[in-house]
Write a protein that binds this DNA or RNA. Sequence first.
RNA 1: GCCCAGAUGGCGGAAUUGGUAGACGCAGCAGACUCAAAAUCUGCCGUUCGCAAGGAUGUGCAGGUUCGAUUCCUGUUCUGGGCACCA
Length: 922
Amino acid sequence: MLNKKRIFVKKMEYNFTSIEKKWNANWKETKAYVVSNDSSKKPFYVLDMFPYPSGAGLHVGHPLGYIASDIYSRYKRLKGFNVLHPMGFDSFGLPAEQYAIETGQHPATTTEKNISTFKAQLDKIGFCYDWEREVRTSDPSYYKWTQFLFLQLFKSWFNPNTNKAESINSLVEFFEKNGGENFSASEWKNYSHKQQQEIIMNYRLAFSAYGEVNWCEALGTVLANDEVINGVSERGGHPVIKKKMRQWYLRITAYAERLLEGLNTVDFSESMKEMQRNWIGKSEGCEMVFEVNNSNGNSQSFIKVYTTRPDTIFGVDFLVLAPEHELVDKITTSEQRESINDYLTYVKSRSDRERMSEVKQITGCFTGAYAINPFNGNKIPVWIAEYVLAGYGTGAIMAVPCGDQRDYLFANHFKISITNIIGDHFDGTQANPTKEATLIESDFLNGMLMKDAIKVAIEKIEFLGIGKRKINYKMRDAGFSRQRYWGEPFPIKWQDGVAIALEETQLPLELPHVEKYGPGPEGEGPLANIENWKTEMLETSTMPGYAGSSWYFLRYMDPKNATAFCDRKVSDYWGQVDVYIGGTEHAVGHLLYSRMWTKVLYDLGFIGFDEPFKKLVNQGMIQGSSRFVYRIKGSQTFVSFGLKDQHEVDELHVDVNMVDGLELDVNAFKIWKPDFAEADFLLEEGKYICGSEVEKMSKSKYNTVNPDDLVLKYGADTFRMYEMFLGPIEQSKPWDTKGIEGVHRFLRKLWRMFNDDVKGIIWNEEKATDAELKILHRTIKKIESDTENFSYNTAVSAFMVAVNELTDIKCFKKEVLEKLLILLAPYAPHIAEELWSQLGKEGSVLDAHYPAFEEKYLVETNKEYPVSINGKVRTNINISLTADQAAVEQIVISNEIIQKWLEGKQPKKIIFVKGKMINVVI
RNA sequence: GCCCAGAUGGCGGAAUUGGUAGACGCAGCAGACUCAAAAUCUGCCGUUCGCAAGGAUGUGCAGGUUCGAUUCCUGUUCUGGGCACCA
């Protein structure tokens, strides 16, 4: 008897394990998530930033964005859209190669293994990906098209007149007709093929050039600027130096202005846009030429400077050239020759790292030469200094110490006298970069506000023919080659120093097998070790990580197309990615590159839109919350957190999963670290309290939490909802598993609205009352708007409120519950589907119609008005919503509590805001 | 140094065309059910004065605007993120 009852109770419980298993199998079998390109429904494209399949697998931070996008996809589907929600893997890259070097395993093997781990983990959480559309950037059938697109870039140039990319043929035609910047049409025709090709290379959107690159000796490769942080490699922290090498580049600078303008048409967060704007670094100013007064008998020289502040031309006290500037040698006087040479030697001895880390150090050297200020004929000394960079502007500046702090410090250090052109705005102790001062000692600019004088000065400079208006960008062309193995080979052959594109029919140029993954000779990549590759003169470097990720969103649309990277009709159907979800770490890398590629493909007519992502949502980073134990130095004794200051202790990371809050499970710890099985533990109030700190989530810090464990313990639906319940999606926060119980309790409570432990099935088909429909419709309204706004934490709380309220009034009516299940389906799809079938509904809840919100159920006749006296709430009075000011005043004044506060006085004023509140001013 | 975002109970957070601060959840306390535990249910839960009724105070800090400020303005401190000799 007792046994029977037990079984019965068990049967009615919320058994998430079997429910989730059952419906995952069902959805797979019915191909519930397969998406068609041929639909009468409106398309909607929701995309996650695809992951790099690392060996470590997923931790709880990864799914945050994936859950958010999954909810949105499912929601849009219920709203009647044909939703594209794919997933794939960014599977080329350095870590797999590093791992290959260490273990000798082929990166393809380890990558394959990692991907299957990732997929298994993702599937447990119940995402609605159409796996038939999966892409992998390291798959030849994918990188065939990466190579194809590279060739399009190679065969195109940016025509500044049309402001877009065009075929390189149009450039050749132009040269044949009109010649180029330094050559005539007939000269062009007389150039050798090689000479012509060298000129053309300077225009290609993907081009090869010798350039200073970030060379990392330890990694044996060249790194992009954004892979170098403070002079060391982002990955591994190895030193990085400048080295001249032949490299491939993308001419992203040609698109600087369009990348900037495009930001006005997309829905990215302001800070994300700001980051991109800063990276592009547009500055408006002018170039102008200073003649050098030659005292050492050389031919005449001119120094071209770039400035954003031509209004300060009369405050110029010296010019500064970058040490690498080509005129340095020519203008240096014999008296200064030795000092200059010493200084140049010093500069060369300094690595980039030192230059960056010692920014505040002031160094420089006088060349002995003087330039002439074209406006007043003053002699201006010409210096060289590290703080002027060869790579920006013209590599030369006009220094205005009263307005620029670096110039001020320099003048101060080398005792150069300072001209003040802004009067009281300059106090002599530091520069003042204001644009609001009125200019003095400035000839034709006298009396003008600096911001107005900028325009006047430029006009004068242009009029005199000594310079012109000029816009500069900080952004550099993007390095596009790596001396590495695990990346896309370039479809390029070298013949007599000329790069030749492979025919498209020769693609994919497959990555050959190599015996060893170490670098080739002379800093070349591993491919240089392959004899065939060398004899065929193929390019030995490979493409960087961002090559495949710059266009993957297009391949998802048409993943199996063997004749095109994506059919134009298909990309026209899906259009831009409607919502793109991912972290902020790709703000200036991936996002800029994919925006550029999209613009090129648009210009060339391959696609019909020139921004890839309509809306970008940045999920915050889930940080790890590390726990520490403290061991007295050299002993086997651990002391609790509060006692550690009394001893000299070592701090050790301890696995966060064996700590409840801050209290360590000492036995679990002893099992985890058998070395300490016999250790002593000094406790506080019977507990061992750990120290804690927020750090990046990583295996080595023992602060990772695996989603698999939580799914096993609470189910995927609880896990999904808890991740969303943590707080606003874009906010970073440390992970804390405490609290997941609350969400789990909510789902069990929902379950009990359908199934009672004792009574069995309790949902019924009774007609819902107005009060019940009011709860329902308030919930519909709230969930719908919260989901639209990605405010998932408040949506989860709205579900809790609805379930609490309906349970309180014992409303278990199908009419209400079935609508609630549809609302819930995007968040907790498994339980929603199970209960939906228990209600006897036809079909899947995935394809139900989203319930329509009806205002009529929310209409109120009365309101509990808060009534305050001088702004402090003293009581609530229930008043009809139709009452006017006079009626309200009457009611309020006659109220007992208000009368008490009035103490017989007349109120000065009664403020009545209909539907909001009442304030009595005494 | 520059740019951006933020600061609300013991904790995660909610509420901004200015209108009852602390929704929802966690943790905690008290109680019911139980032989007991789990599960579940009920009540309390910013601080402070008070037996209570009720009052005072309270959204980083200091001011201001307003009948009324977490919300707007000025200044300031701290935290997180980005950029950094870019002329």
